[in-house]
């Protein structure tokens, strides 16, 4: 495990490639993520770092939406941070449990000429024509997760999560329309994480 003393994404990849025998599941360290949906892509992959006594999960993800779903391929780059409340915690066995409360936020950027950070920079619009960015989204999320840890040296810490989120434009729409239901502005995603 010493090879992962200063881990990053590549360090984790090296550890994962070397096999679980050298990994020490401490709950502190790098992890890899695969997420489906949640507005971050058909599939988003990336990694981050378990820190803050297993309560904080900053991560970076790259998402992809194929042409069949987006009429043009979409690439979404996301920075996300999740806080995992240690309690309540529902034990499912000696080394597995459910943590029903994790909340977080994200900011992402959708690449492509169709999307602008500031409308004026497209050259088509006067200053302030569109006040929002069509490329950058802010979002908030809440998730439920199942965690499984392994014996030291036996494998990786594993997390499955089901996540509900919304973004700034949906929230703004809801803010001025009390009859727009919360179920209309919330989107769903799910993912898995594995790490040291």
């Amino acid at each position: 495990m010493r090879t992962c003393a200063k881990p990053g994404l590549w360090g984790l990849c090296a550890c994962l490639a070397a096999g679980p025998a050298i990994a020490q599941p401490s709950g502190q360290g790098p992890f890899l993520t695969v997420q489906v949906g949640g507005g971050l892509g058909l599939v988003a992959v990336g990694g981050g770092w378990w820190g803050g006594r297993q309560r904080l999960e900053p991560e970076l993800l790259v998402g992809y939406v194929p042409r069949a779903l987006g009429s043009r391929p979409l690439f979404i780059f996301t920075a996300k941070a999740t806080y995992v409340a240690p309690r309540p915690r529902l034990e499912l066995g000696e080394r597995a449990w459910v943590q029903p409360l994790a909340v977080g936020g994200f900011v992402n950027y959708t690449a492509g000429r169709a999307f602008f950070v500031r409308s004026v920079r497209t050259g088509r619009y006067p200053q302030g024509y569109y006040w929002w960015s069509s490329a950058v989204r802010l979002g908030a999320c809440a998730s439920l997760r199942v965690v499984r840890v392994r014996e030291p040296g036996q494998g990786f810490r594993q997390v499955l999560y089901s996540e509900w989120s919304t973004n700034d434009l949906y929230a703004i729409s809801r803010a001025s329309n009390c009859r727009l239901r919360l179920t209309e502005i919330v989107v769903w995603g799910a993912g898995a994480k594995a790490g040291l």
């Binding site: 507005g39 058909l42 939406v65 779903l69 987006g70 979409l74 989204r137 509900w164 919330v186 769903w188």
Partner: peptide, 8 residues
């Protein structure tokens, strides 16, 4: 509620 992107 599955959504891949707000722009899908």
């Amino acid at each position: 509620a599955l959504e891949f992107s707000p722009n899908q």
